[in-house]
Amino acid sequence: MRRSDLGEFEEVVLLAVAALSPNAYTVAIAEEIERETGNVVTSGAVHAAMQRLEQKGYLRSVWGEATAERGGRRKRLYTVTALGGRILEESRAVRNRFWDRIMPAIRLEWS
């Protein structure tokens, strides 16, 4: 796995898309990440990240329905592609393997 392929924020966004699917669109994701992390997240940052992810082939998008909230504009709905799913799993596996190697004693010392 090439590290540069997936930035940290990108990974979060990708996870968020997977979690919110099939209703993942920019604003929902931004709000979800805000809620989960407590940091302010602009839709622009999310949009840019999703653009990159889409280019890499981890996401795909289709036009969704238009809502009055959006001034009659359509949403763009994102879903994770198979490649995106595998990447997520791979990164999770890497992490899990490391977690598993951390001795419980040390884990206790952090807290």
């Binding site: 920019t26 604003v27 949009h47 959006r70 001034g71 504009r73 949403k75």
Partner: peptide, 14 residues
Amino acid sequence: REQILGDLQERYIR
């Protein structure tokens, strides 16, 4: 444009 303006407006309204 459509997506960006839509997003901006939606967040604003919320």
